[in-house]
Computed example of a mutant assay.
Amino acid sequence: MSVPKKIAILVVDDQQPMRKTIAYILRQLGIKDIQFAEDGDAAWKHINETRVDLVLLDWNMPRLSGLSLLERIRKSETFAKLPVIMVTAEANTDHVLTAMQAGVTDYVVKPFSPNTLLKKLEDVCAHSPSLIKLSVG
């Protein structure tokens, strides 16, 4: 399954060059609805105000970390099933396990290739009922 072109992706990273890089890759995949937040607080506000189908989330950010935002999303009745891919430089096993226990949908380690991100997006889209509906509709 490919990534639905109608998908709305929120890229959450405190580093503007990384947000731009991810956006560039997503645009190459034909995705037009790319939204941005520079920390977990801004992302949480955005998720509550705008349609977001999937979150690409950095771990290390000021104010509210990616892990804290993930935990907040999973505890929320409204957004508990929102697919979240952690995109982070945190590659050690403890971090991956912590993110898995917190309910992350998938995990990408920086630096990554466009192909790696595409594969993760395809995997998540194939297994998330809300994203499967976007492909058909």
Results as ranks from 00 to 15, higher is better:
V11Q: 05
Q15T: 11
Q16S: 09
P17M: 00
I22L: 05
I22R: 03
Y24D: 06
Y24A: 08
I25R: 02
R27L: 03
R27C: 01
Q28C: 01
L29V: 00
G30S: 09
K32V: 12
D33P: 00
D33Q: 05
D33V: 02
Q35L: 04
Q35W: 00
Q35C: 00
F36Y: 12
F36C: 00
F36S: 03
A37W: 00
D39Q: 10
G40N: 08
D41T: 11
D41N: 15
A43Q: 07
W44Q: 09
W44V: 04
K45L: 10
I47K: 07
N48E: 10
N48I: 03
E49W: 00
T50V: 07
V52L: 01
V52Q: 03
V52T: 12
V52E: 01
V52F: 04
D53N: 07
V55T: 06
L56Q: 04
L57G: 06
M61S: 04
P62R: 13
R63W: 08
R63Q: 15
L64F: 08
G66C: 09
G66P: 10
L67D: 01
L67S: 07
S68V: 11
S68G: 12
L69A: 08
L70D: 03
L70C: 09
E71Q: 15
R72P: 02
R72D: 06
I73Y: 04
K75Y: 00
S76Q: 05
F79M: 04
A80G: 10
A80P: 01
L82D: 03
P83M: 05
P83D: 05
V84T: 02
I85R: 01
M86C: 02
M86F: 03
V87S: 02
A89M: 11
A89E: 13
E90R: 13
E90C: 12
E90F: 04
E90K: 13
A91Q: 13
A91Y: 13
N92W: 07
T93D: 15
T93C: 03
D94T: 08
D94P: 05
H95S: 14
H95Y: 14
H95D: 14
V96N: 04
M100E: 13
Q101G: 13
G103H: 09
V104A: 15
V104D: 05
T105P: 13
T105A: 04
D106K: 08
Y107N: 10
Y107A: 13
Y107W: 10
V108N: 00
V108Y: 05
V108C: 06
V109F: 09
K110D: 10
F112T: 05
F112E: 04
F112H: 07
S113V: 06
N115W: 08
N115K: 14
T116D: 11
T116E: 14
L117S: 00
L117M: 02
L117N: 00
L118G: 01
L118V: 05
K119I: 10
K119P: 02
K120G: 01
L121Q: 03
D123E: 12
V124H: 07
C125Q: 09
C125R: 08
C125S: 15
A126T: 08
A126I: 03
H127T: 12
P129H: 09
P129A: 11
S130G: 11
K133A: 15
L134R: 10
